[in-house]
Amino acid sequence: MTDITITTASGQQLCLRAEVADSFFKRFLGLMGRPDLPKGTGMVIYPCSSIHMMFMRFPIDAVFFDKKNHIVKIARHLKPWTGFSIAYGAYGVLELTAGTLDDIDLSVDACWLSLDGIHLA
Rank of each mutant, 00 (worst) to 15 (best):
M1F: 10
T2D: 06
D3C: 08
I4P: 02
I6H: 00
T7I: 14
T7D: 07
T7E: 10
T8A: 01
Q12L: 05
Q13N: 09
Q13E: 11
L14W: 03
L14G: 02
L16P: 04
R17E: 12
R17G: 11
A18P: 03
E19A: 13
E19F: 00
E19G: 03
E19I: 01
E19S: 12
A21K: 05
A21P: 01
D22P: 01
S23T: 15
F24V: 10
F24R: 09
F25K: 14
F25L: 15
F25T: 14
K26Y: 02
R27Q: 05
R27F: 02
R27W: 02
F28L: 15
L29A: 13
G30D: 00
G30R: 00
R34I: 11
L37V: 02
L37E: 08
L37D: 08
P38Y: 08
K39A: 15
G40V: 12
G40D: 05
G40I: 12
G40K: 01
T41P: 08
G42H: 00
G42Y: 02
M43H: 09
V44P: 05
V44A: 01
V44I: 14
I45K: 07
S49H: 15
S50W: 11
S50H: 13
S50A: 10
I51D: 10
I51N: 08
I51R: 05
H52I: 07
M53G: 11
M53T: 07
M56P: 00
M56S: 03
P59V: 05
I60K: 03
D61G: 03
D61Y: 06
A62T: 00
V63Q: 01
F64I: 09
F65A: 01
F65V: 01
F65T: 06
F65K: 03
D66T: 10
D66E: 03
K67Y: 02
H70Y: 14
H70R: 13
H70F: 15
I71Q: 07
V72A: 00
K73T: 11
K73Q: 12
A75L: 03
R76I: 09
R76W: 06
R76S: 12
R76Y: 06
L78A: 03
K79W: 05
K79T: 07
K79Q: 15
P80M: 09
W81I: 07
W81Y: 15
T82C: 10
T82N: 09
T82F: 12
T82L: 07
F84H: 04
S85H: 14
S85D: 02
S85V: 11
I86G: 04
I86C: 11
I86H: 14
A87F: 05
Y88N: 09
Y88R: 14
Y88A: 13
Y88K: 14
G89D: 06
Y91T: 04
Y91I: 01
Y91A: 07
G92E: 12
G92I: 02
G92H: 13
L94T: 07
L94N: 00
E95V: 10
L96G: 04
T97R: 07
T97Y: 08
T97D: 12
A98T: 13
G99T: 02
G99V: 03
T100H: 03
L101E: 06
D102R: 05
D102L: 10
D103C: 07
D105K: 12
S107L: 09
A110K: 15
W112N: 11
W112E: 11
S114G: 11
S114W: 12
S114K: 13
S114L: 12
S114N: 14
L115T: 12
D116Q: 05
H119N: 13
H119I: 05
A121K: 15
